[in-house]
Design a protein around this nucleic acid. Sequence first.
DNA 1: TATTGTTATACTCTATAACTATA
DNA 2: TATAGTTATAGAGTATAACAATA
Lengths: 143, 143
Amino acid sequence: MDTAPESDLPELFVRAAKRIRRNQSARLAPLGLTPAQARALRIIARHSEPLRMAALAERLDIVPRSATTVVDALESSGLVGRAVDPSNRRSTLVTLTDAGRVALSRMSAARREAAEELFSALSPDERETLRHLLATLDAGDRC
Amino acid sequence: MDTAPESDLPELFVRAAKRIRRNQSARLAPLGLTPAQARALRIIARHSEPLRMAALAERLDIVPRSATTVVDALESSGLVGRAVDPSNRRSTLVTLTDAGRVALSRMSAARREAAEELFSALSPDERETLRHLLATLDAGDRC
DNA sequence: TATTGTTATACTCTATAACTATA
DNA sequence: TATAGTTATAGAGTATAACAATA
């Protein structure tokens, strides 16, 4: 047999990411959201003040043009609104709507269930170790 | 400040996967390969015998139709060949060409460099722990 | 009738380049 | 001229559904 699954780190990440993406897609579809839209919504919600498009793009780790597509979708769904920044009319401020807040609260339950389902193979200690290693990686790769 | 980066496991995975995908794309582009094509090529190479399309799709964790697209690209590049399975003429056997073997050997150096670059923030022990946790997760989610 | 792969099509995510409005 | 965001376009990755050839 030469079918032993490859187990190097990048390959394992690709596999895990694929499972997570699928799980998220399935759970978010009933809410009318894609994973990228949900991610953007959470980032917008985490901020007390409206976010500029460029700031949102940076936090999503995508180029500004790609953020436009994501926000277009969220705006069409009525979950966020765009407003011209009065202090710099070139900038667009993205704000959460009431509907957006409702969507977010529905998402949080789905996210908890998804995390439980995806990481049930690990003990709480193991999950914390994993979280720590991934956070270290995340911080390291940005320097 | 309410800008502390979210650090739950799914979010950390999405971020890590994005970095890995980018790194792989950049390293594979000069070889004329996409990450998915490279992954397929490695799976085909790991087998001593030709792989059926359905078997390849299963190992890539994609539907058979999607495997067709990947193999089409590899065949156009001359890295793999298709042959009718004599024992079951409905099946297609995918085989590595000499050019495919050359491409694979070039890939392996690129993969080592990529892994070193991506995981340099972790010690060898930490990498092994991470590998173990991801492998556990991978095995668990398939049952 | 069931299986294997493919044709046809569509959607998500993201990118580069060129343009517009504003500064 | 520089900046912020967008219009236009493209490509990677993957999916569902319908169909052909074979079993």
